[in-house]
């Protein structure tokens, strides 16, 4: 088990390096000058030079990237060019929102998607049609549009749920949940369909395997065959899919946080892009990448737990 964790983390380091370097260089080539953003249009050349030096922009690119890497090791992601606050503080204040969204979505979509897929694999017919329709619609509707439609119905029409904004769980757990319902619904819509279809395929595939026949013929109880044997074997491909949808989910947060005005990392990234706030963008990418790495690690562990062949290798 520790071997897998160690191996995975070791493999992840180059990924972290690659992703941050790519963003670093791409962003640094973008037109727009952070010094100008800070000073506005009216400034003297001296002021301009002073700000650039303060920001470290006079240094060569590689040196700046090296410095940035060195700082990470000390838990320092620099300061925002826009408002001089430490990036770590800004990100930490917002990461909770994104994590709530992401975890909530994962929970909801996995429970509903796997449940639907399982049910439709065993009952086929009508349920299978529902699963197909749900997954088709979930994929076909643009997420920002779905968000607006849901807001129009549930917030403006029925006044059941807040249209926008986020409530801290410390302030009011109930309102926190209510503020998450629509965003989570929008994010889950495409994933539920994908998971349901994958689950159905996986379960149908397992149902065809000879060992199910062996167990049935041997007199194993139908409940045990379903919950012990079929689910566990079907879970192996499903876990992989859950891991893959996760990255797409992070992309989704960017749009959903913007539509619902949630103070999370995704919305921050959009803002920072328009302000050329390099340290913030890098910070967001860094956080996202770490989240992805942790998820991949969890997927690997789940995979190893489910599949004894991997454990041995």
């Amino acid at each position: 088990m520790f071997k897998i964790i160690g191996y995975r983390l070791l493999v992840s380091l180059p990924l972290l390096f690659f992703v941050t370097a790519l963003t670093f260089f791409l962003v640094s080539f973008t037109p727009g000058d952070p010094a100008v953003v800070i000073l506005g249009q009216n400034h003297t050349p001296e002021e301009y030079q002073r700000v650039r030096e303060q920001l470290g922009l006079t240094q060569p690119l590689l040196v700046r990237y090296g410095d940035w890497l060195g700082d990470i090791v000390q838990g320092n992601l620099g300061t925002s060019i826009f408002n001089q606050e430490p990036v770590v503080a800004i990100l930490n204040s917002r990461v909770g929102v994104t994590l709530s969204l992401v975890l909530g979505t994962t929970l909801v979509s996995t429970l509903v998607g796997v449940g639907l897929g399982l049910a439709s694999a065993l009952r086929r017919g009508f349920l299978a049609t529902i699963v197909d329709t749900v997954s088709l619609l979930g994929f076909a509707l643009p997420n920002f549009w779905l968000a607006l439609v849901l807001v129009a119905i549930f917030s403006i029409g029925l006044h059941w749920l807040p249209a926008i904004g986020y409530v801290d769980p410390a302030t009011s757990p109930g309102d926190w949940l209510r503020s998450l319902v629509l965003p989570v619904l929008v994010l889950s819509a495409p994933i539920i369909g994908v998971l349901a279809q994958q689950t159905r395929n996986a379960v149908l595939e397992v149902l065809d395997r000879p060992f199910i026949q062996t167990l049935r013929a041997g007199g194993a109880s139908p409940a045990s065959i379903l919950f012990r044997h079929i689910l566990r074997n079907a879970a192996i491909p499903i876990v992989t899919v859950v891991g893959l949808t996760f990255v797409g989910l992070l992309s989704g947060t960017v749009i959903v946080e913007t539509v619902f005005a949630l103070p999370g990392l995704g919305g921050l990234a959009v803002q920072a892009t328009s302000r050329h706030d390099l340290p913030i963008i890098q910070g967001v990418v860094f956080y996202f990448t770490v989240i992805v790495i942790v998820v991949n690690l969890l997927v690997d562990l789940a995979y190893a737990w489910l599949n004894p062949r991997v454990r041995v290798a």
Binding site: P14, L15, V19, V27, T30, G32, S251, V254, A269
Partner: peptide
């Protein structure tokens, strides 16, 4: 395979945001 792993791990929209600020 390594490059694919890396690119699949990046939320695509972030990189496109970056590209868009490069070519508004």
């Amino acid at each position: 395979s390594a490059i694919t792993d890396a690119i699949l791990a990046i939320p695509a929209i972030i990189l496109v945001l970056v590209i868009l600020s490069l070519f508004p």
